[in-house]
Design a protein around this nucleic acid. Structure first.
Lengths: 101, 101
DNA sequence: CATACTGGTTTGCAGTACAAACCAGTTGGC
DNA sequence: GCCAACTGGTTTGTACTGCAAACCAGTATG
């Protein structure tokens, strides 16, 4: 582990680094598309918490949020953008490199 | 990547997860012992920032801080405790598992 | 003596994660 | 039809935390 790799830590993407969001992004990376309730159940987050983290991810253009209906019931669909996928990949690689062995 | 592994993210050790501290801990894990100024230079952190992160790590019993002198000049020695080393190992393994491919 | 430097610590502020409270709309019981 | 409870979220309030600027004690230098 070289010094410059270590120093790179200070530049890690905070939007993704936050555990709750890392969780969300990892989930979305795995399934391509999911609805609010699915992510809610899988993550174990509270609704409020999930809602605000999604807002942050959307603001960062890492996810897209589509509000629609399943019958008469509201349905919020979530999916990673290309930028989100890239950011996650970058984060993964950086952290993997740093933490390997 | 199984759901339960994902959910484990929410329990990640925040003391270590913080990038600046991850950097410090990784440095100390590599060298066994270091002084304040060395870590300061290697990390690129400001003195104040480093000082407060060290306080947090000490409070968590992850590092030991020994204040002594090199001649007449103050010298602050830093080293990981066994608990700190374990915590880092645990963190590394968890994150590696989660981010692997 | 005073000015500058070393090796830090403390302070103030701005940003953030979190859950509790809230809200709009729907379903179910009577 | 009416009201209570539920679904699917959002907004609000608070407590914490990372950060750098300001500060401080002591030492070396002119």
């Amino acid at each position: 582990m070289k010094p410059e790799d270590l120093r790179a830590l200070t530049e890690v993407d905070r939007v993704i680094h936050e555990p709750a969001r890392l969780l969300i992004v990892a989930l979305l990376a795995a399934v391509k598309e999911a609805d609010f309730v699915y992510v809610l159940r899988e993550s174990g987050l509270t609704k409020g918490n999930l809602s605000s983290h999604l807002a942050k991810l959307e603001e960062a253009r890492y996810i897209e949020v589509e509000k629609t209906y399943r019958g008469k019931i509201p349905l919020t669909l979530l999916r990673l953008t290309a930028a989100g996928r890239e950011a996650f990949e970058g984060y993964r690689k950086r952290m993997n490199g740093l933490l390997r062995q």
